[in-house]
Amino acid sequence: MRIVVSGTHASGKSTLVGDFSAAHPEFEVLPDPYELLDEAGDEPDAGLFLAQLGISARRLLEFDPGAKVIAERGPLDFLAYLTALDELGRASRPGGHPPRAVDLTVAAMAHVDLLVLLPLGGDIRVPEDEDPELREAMDDALLELSDDPDLLGGARVIEVTGDGGARLAQVETAIADLGGC
């Protein structure tokens, strides 16, 4: 079961992945690609998101069906950030997404069984230095992109809400429905 947990910054991804990992230690955890960057600037830009898209896609391509892995963020997250930058007029690359980014997203998503979306809601608030405008724009873009079957590669998509226990239970139910653990 190859799982990707997606959502904008400060949406609860790390908490859900941690809760899941504690309950299912047989799963390999893939951290947020940001943690794997050698040099990341403080200001999010298209280059930073493209680098993370590449990391998240390449690592998903390594796993065969039947692998037990849960990833914090996938390529769809970073395609959503690129979309959000465009919509906010902050794009550093004119003309939309590079075709390679879309192609890489499609190829990697073919290696995902379950895409878990954490839409904004509830009471997680971020300070101004966390760019709430980008956070909301990315959330909108991610939810829209997750409706595009051409990008999803057959992955089942669920939106989870509620507290930590409710979110974990929703993921476990989806895994059971798919014939997993």
Rank of each mutant, 00 (worst) to 15 (best):
V5M: 01
A57S: 13
E128T: 08
V29H: 01
D140P: 00
G96V: 12
L115R: 00
A155T: 03
S146Y: 08
L142D: 06
K13S: 12
L48A: 13
S21G: 12
L143C: 08
D123R: 14
L16A: 02
D139F: 05
E26P: 06
A84N: 03
D103E: 15
L50W: 10
H9I: 10
G54V: 15
D139L: 06
R2C: 11
P31M: 04
R167H: 08
L30G: 05
L168Q: 05
L168M: 03
L145P: 03
T161V: 13
L168D: 03
V160K: 01
A137V: 07
E172N: 02
L151Q: 08
V157Y: 10
D45A: 11
L134Q: 13
G66W: 00
G153A: 06
L114T: 04
V160T: 13
A137S: 11
T161S: 15
E87H: 14
L79H: 06
H111S: 09
P65V: 10
A67V: 09
S56D: 08
A46S: 15
L36E: 14
L53G: 03
A91R: 15
H24W: 10
G164E: 13
G180Y: 04
V17G: 02
S11I: 02
A23R: 10
G7E: 09
H111T: 05
P44G: 14
V4W: 00
